[in-house]
Amino acid sequence: MNEINFDKSPDGLIPAVIQDAETGKVLMLGYMNREAYDKTVAENVVTFFSRSKQRLWTKGETSNNFLHVENLLVDCDGDTLLVKARPAGPTCHTGADTCFEEVNRGQGQFLNYLQGVIHDRKMNPSDKSYTASLFGRGVNKIAQKVGEEAVELVIEAKDDNDDLFKGEAADLLFHFLVLLEQKNLDLDDIVAVLKGRHAK
């Protein structure tokens, strides 16, 4: 991680952009001095320096809507912090999900994480890994599994059991990602096709 330079600012404060670690939504902007940063790192809960109260302020200290830290990134100039966090509730004091009045939803970023796991199973196979066993059987077997899961999803769609339907949908999506990896393609490649069609 880059070094943070608190001395760049006359008041020793740097902006800290808070981003939901799962959805990617920007939740709020606050400021940290070195003491607030050290407390954030030590406790894994976001603490700011309040410019209005002139003291340390842990987000959620009155509402219990804490921001639990997942990752801290420093920009290339060392004077801005990106905090990826898991919010324990609405972030804004107004009760909104974010301070920008956006709805904080969408777990799409997890698919990118899952792609990374699948890629690792391919490059570092293990006898205990179901995913690695699929790669070991080749593209025909993986494609067959995608077809089987698609049929099972269609069957469940005709019934009224949402839990079973969601389970089959998850199975189909997982095996589709495995097939993409086998074909050395990325989910972004498919999204690009969809975006191209949408633009027409």
Rank of each mutant, 00 (worst) to 15 (best):
L27K: 01
L27Q: 05
L29T: 04
G30I: 11
Y31G: 06
M32N: 03
M32L: 00
M32T: 00
N33W: 06
N33D: 03
R34N: 07
E35H: 05
A36G: 02
Y37V: 05
D38E: 15
D38N: 09
T40L: 04
T40E: 01
T40W: 00
A42Y: 06
A42G: 06
E43L: 10
N44R: 10
N44K: 12
V45N: 05
V45I: 12
V45P: 07
V45K: 08
V46L: 06
V46Y: 01
T47S: 03
F49G: 01
S50K: 07
R51N: 03
R51V: 02
S52A: 06
K53P: 11
K53Y: 11
Q54K: 12
T58P: 07
K59E: 04
G60R: 02
G60Q: 00
G60P: 01
E61W: 07
E61T: 08
T62Y: 11
S63N: 01
S63R: 02
S63F: 06
S63K: 06
N64V: 00
N65E: 03
N65S: 00
F66M: 07
F66D: 09
L67Y: 02
L67W: 08
H68E: 15
V69P: 02
L72Q: 02
L72P: 10
L73Q: 13
L73D: 09
V74S: 10
D75P: 04
D77G: 08
D77W: 02
D77A: 10
D77S: 10
G78K: 12
G78H: 09
L81T: 04
L82G: 08
V83K: 14
K84D: 13
K84R: 08
A88M: 13
A88C: 09
A88T: 09
G89Q: 07
P90L: 08
P90N: 13
P90F: 13
P90V: 12
H93P: 14
H93S: 14
H93E: 13
T94Y: 07
G95F: 10
D97M: 08
D97A: 13
T98I: 03
C99L: 02
C99E: 05
F100H: 11
F100I: 11
E101H: 11
E101F: 11
E101W: 10
E102D: 14
V103D: 12
V103Q: 11
N104C: 14
R105H: 12
R105V: 11
R105W: 14
G106F: 04
Q107F: 15
Q107S: 15
G108D: 06
G108M: 05
Q109K: 12
F110A: 14
L111T: 06
L111K: 12
N112S: 14
Y113N: 08
Y113R: 09
V117L: 10
I118K: 05
I118G: 04
H119K: 14
H119E: 03
H119S: 09
D120H: 11
D120E: 10
R121T: 13
R121K: 14
K122T: 02
M123Q: 12
N124S: 04
N124D: 01
N124E: 00
P125I: 06
P125W: 12
